[in-house]
Design a protein around this nucleic acid. Structure first.
Lengths: 351, 351
DNA sequence: AAATTTAACGCAACCGATTGCGCCAAAAAT
DNA sequence: ATTTTTGGCGCAATCGGTTGCGTTAAATTT
């Protein structure tokens, strides 16, 4: 097994009779090397097939051109889109992207944060796990002036970049939409309340009810742990068995919303006529379920791109890591059949 | 901005009056260091908060404990599941995972392969882009004895690990299933034929037709470039407008299959009675569309786990990279409503 | 008791790039 | 013509582990 030897700056130095310092500077287009020499070195580097050893540079600089990602689950449309956005932006800038997933376990999040720290990432992009309450495990990054971008699921208190959507307004509007469609008893699938996303969506929901002078019925607010399919089915059954079942449902995610659609259909409930439903995320399945699920769409890929850009900018500008900058992106209410009572009624009458 | 200094093996050496060599060996549990000393060193390392600098080790070994992933799109259920599987397995072994996506462009695949190579990955896991025909850009890995695992979309000729499913058999069975349900004119959405996955699924489809003495009609084999939703809609319209439209459809992926369901429904075609449909992949949307889509399921996460394991094993055993080992996993035909003509007819009669 | 083996550890080179400092010669200023 | 500036480059240390080889003292063999 013959391994082809890699070309180093020392090889180039020998060939051209320059010192390694000059080679290094020339390759980095350092101003203290003449144009002529720089060109010459670039040419020979290309000819000999020189490839920089980024490990060596990283060691020297104590910083790898790498962005670390820490999400709860890679295998989820929203996360995958964020990651995709990060990857696109990072790679254009010559950065690598290291991924890790906590599987929604706090313990894994801590371990992974350590691992990414030890890998000398240039920056970290985090979406918190379901279980995360304290954020001490991120302090080490701040201490080393490594920028952190929290995206979507962000902590309440932490000096850092944040890239989020306006969950409160989105929740408010989702519920307002149902009200506009004529719903009067609107249920809500709420997620873990220590997470900003679920907390704010619920707040928006409640305020929308109040400002429309609608009763806020405790039995219609269902707190789900995982917001998963099974949990959604159970919760839906429960709701439908109430003495006064709801005529609208705002679910904090699409998975649970879809489970509600299927469960309700199974029980012979007409959607949206008897139960109008709106979800959150605009997962691919939303447009495919029957009736198609109304939902709130995230600009997930864009959030990833922006997050990556924050880190790149931070690194190039050599800023201090105690910055605190919030980027809030717009969401959009996507109205499909599952909540479109007005249109559904019109169709009924029309025929 | 005070940066806390990191503890190195030199610090430990000074404190304990050992040489850095001994510290290094002890931390790696090298046998030539006594049990007692090893324990002592481990203890003090923990107490002082020593964290190994993997960059330094990587530089010395010319190998980072990192697995590189190169897929066409991260943001796709199948890819995301593979990546998730890789991440789980890799992280358990203390490896990082660097991702990259080609967005189905050959050029990007080449660039990314270079970038991953330059990052000194310990191994590479690849699922080819749609455009990839030659695989010269992977030769550099072989030359350096870096293991490559091709997963799912694999090249025709290349000494390497492969983790795949039996696409031929899966295709055969999918079509056989439609035949068993009573279909006689079965259409096929075929993908780019230079890719093994689509090529073999088509072969299986054709052989199933032949062995059941069914006519193979050219106009029923539709070659799609991207296998995307829009393309699927167009193709479905085309099929339905044929003088003799098909009564069955085997689509090489779920996206196109779902587009067919929606398009056919829109045209008033009854599924599965008039057109039975089966897809491929078991994407989340498959179980949610109405009628639910029959499909062929991949063990995607498992494929990722196995791929990662191949690299870990290869590295620990220090094998030569000219191994060629194929792992073929089982698929499963998931029968849902979209193809279940027999059951559908029974229900009709039953009422 | 002398010779040999072995256990336990240190020395120093090495991986490849980066960079503060210094040097020299040519250009500019006086 | 002398001094000062500056452009262009080299020296050598540095980043933090790793490892082949050598050394020493204790354990074992003869």
């Amino acid at each position: 097994m013959k391994k082809k030897k890699e070309v180093t700056i020392y090889d180039l130095a020998k060939v051209l009779n320059y010192s390694p310092s000059t080679i290094s500077r020339a390759l980095n287009n350092h101003k203290s090397i003449s144009q002529k020499t720089t060109k010459e070195i670039h040419k020979i580097a290309k000819d000999l097939g020189y490839r920089p050893n980024s490990l060596a540079a990283s060691l020297r600089n104590n910083k790898s051109k790498t962005i670390g990602i820490l999400v709860s689950r890679i295998n989820r449309p929203f996360s995958a889109s964020i990651i995709s956005g990060v990857e696109n932006t990072a790679r254009k800038a010559g950065y690598n992207v290291i991924i890790s997933q906590s599987n929604d376990k706090y313990e894994n999040e801590v371990t992974n944060a350590k691992a990414l720290y030890d890998s000398r990432v240039s920056g970290l992009i985090v979406s918190l796990s379901m279980e995360t309450i304290n954020t001490n495990h991120f302090q080490q990054f701040v201490d080393q002036n490594i920028p952190i971008v929290f995206v979507d699921r962000v902590p309440a208190e932490f000096n850092s970049y944040r890239v989020i959507i306006d969950n409160y307004t989105a929740g408010y509007r989702a519920t307002q939409h149902l009200i506009d469609q004529g719903c009067r008893r609107i249920a809500h699938f709420a997620g873990a309340q220590h997470l900003n996303v679920y907390n704010l969506r619920k707040k928006g929901h409640l305020d929308a009810l109040r400002e429309n002078n609608l009763e806020v019925a405790d039995e219609l607010i269902i707190h789900l742990d995982t917001m998963g399919f099974e949990e959604g089915c159970q919760a839906t059954k429960m709701l439908l068995n109430l003495p006064q079942p709801p005529d609208g449902l705002f679910s904090s995610n699409d998975t649970a919303a879809v489970s509600a659609i299927l469960t309700a259909k199974d029980k012979g409930i007409k959607i949206p006529e008897e139960l109008a439903i709106i979800g959150f995320n605009d997962d691919p399945m939303a447009s495919v379920v029957e009736p198609a699920l109304s939902t709130v769409s995230h600009p997930a890929t864009k959030m990833g791109e922006i997050s990556a850009q924050r880190i790149l900018d931070h690194s190039s500008k050599k800023l201090d890591s105690d910055v605190s900058e919030i980027t809030m992106l717009d969401t959009e209410i996507i109205v499909r059949s599952s909540s479109n009572k007005i249109n559904a009624l019109r169709l009924m009458e029309g025929k």
